[in-house]
Design a protein around this nucleic acid. Structure first.
Lengths: 238, 238
DNA sequence: CGGCGCCTTGAGGTACGTCAACGAAAGTGG
DNA sequence: CCACTTTCGTTGACGTACCTCAAGGCGCCG
């Protein structure tokens, strides 16, 4: 980095190409930085927002990983997704003005706030299409998950999700073979609609077959083509 | 209706309270009608848009029901959702500029087009919060489906979806007990991640137990509480 | 060392997929 | 108007993948 430290967090943001800043003139970034404020780092386990909170803003993941989930009246947790840099969070809350899910950091993470009442200016400075693009990605990811969860076989659901994560890694400029997975097996199984034991067995089978190797907090894809054959093709859910 | 026929389709729209028009001043509706054009009625089986088409707009269902789906390279169809009046369609296409799914009318239906390049004016006339509200509902619906599909038992998935439809019926001002279901069993089973036969058996069991009665193209919920007990509670997915 | 998460591994039951035959409704042609 | 075909939904028998219950490694921290 030869350029000096700037007080504009958008100009120095590592994920700006994924974000609202994408496609904006350099000069518009100053205006953008007034609508979009990065949060202080949230440590593992800290909430970005909670179910029931007022939802007068939404968020963009800047670094780290977040988990979103909802509770049943019985107190069971239902994981609705894992969210990597460049992804929108908290949009569901805009339906009613109160968040319908909770978001918690799975490791030290940061997110940018976008206030709802600043969005009009966001459109004025030309960030509207970026916003729509991100919303589209968010819906597309949801649709991809939907198809993936529709799969009957547990192997297919796991393989499909690993590939989705792989695409995400590639999109944020990392090695697509190395999946960064700070979530617990419990959460992952919950999200994929299976039991902890089933997920463990599937991963065991994948490892034994040489499809993947799993270290602590990461999974390495060794043979993507074979995984692809197990999963059905998901319409590019980046 | 005592008022004369108007050439502003938004003012005469039966679903305007669900739509972008909600919350707008009466005077702003004229501006809104310039951004939002209703389509001619689409007959059953006609496409609103197709996978791969340019996505320079999105849609709001005005009447009828649409099915969205994607194809695998193998040619299998994957149903991603059924969409009732007041729901947004085609947002996923904004991610890349090309539609990632196809939308087809399940009965004679209409939808309003919202051109992407008109959205800036939509924000100017105050429709931005309505748009965000609708986007939020769309995401919320997706999250609800996600949780529902995460259910292991087929009974729970079916019960959960019937209740979701029930809420939708109520929202659009119809009897919440009577579900309007123009989709084929095949499509419904596909969407719910089970086989035709399983769905048939589940419905048979529900009918025999007196939980529902199913006529042609509609399902009547007789004992919502018992259905609720079968489904886990889904966070209000209106 | 002992307690506690977190994950793995094992044994057994069952819900759902698969295959296949049947029935009912709707569109077609004579 | 009635056989024919086609589509769609129901019902049955059987196998299997996954859930359930339960016990057993590991790593972490007191």
């Amino acid at each position: 980095m030869t350029q000096p430290a700037t007080d504009n967090p958008c100009k120095s943001c590592p994920t700006r190409v994924l974000c609202l800043a994408s496609g904006l003139e350099e000069t518009a970034l100053d205006s953008l930085a007034e609508c979009v404020k990065p949060s202080a780092p949230l440590e593992k386990g800290k909430h970005l927002y909670r179910e029931g909170n007022r939802a007068d803003r939404c968020y963009v993941v800047r670094s780290g990983v977040f988990k979103t989930f909802a509770m049943t009246p019985a107190g069971d947790e239902y994981v609705t997704g894992f969210h990597y840099p460049g992804e929108l969070l908290g949009v569901t809350g805009q339906a009613t003005g109160r968040h319908a899910d909770s978001a918690v950091a799975l490791e030290t993470s940061t997110a940018c706030r976008v206030r709802l009442d600043e969005m009009a200016t966001l459109w004025e400075i030309g960030g509207g299409t970026s916003l729509m693009r991100m919303l589209g990605q968010s819906e597309k990811k949801a649709a991809g998950s939907q198809i993936n969860l529709g799969q009957v076989r547990a192997d297919a659901r796991v393989a499909g999700y690993l590939l989705q994560l792989s695409r995400k890694q590639q999109q944020i400029g990392r090695d697509k073979r190395i999946l960064h997975t700070p979530m617990s097996r419990t959460d992952l199984a919950n999200f994929l609609g299976m039991t902890l034991e089933s997920l463990s067995r599937v991963m065991g089978r994948f490892s034994k077959a040489g499809l993947v190797t799993s270290r602590l907090g990461e999974i390495v894809i060794e043979r993507p083509d074979d995984l692809q054959a197990l999963a059905l093709h998901i319409p590019d859910s980046d």
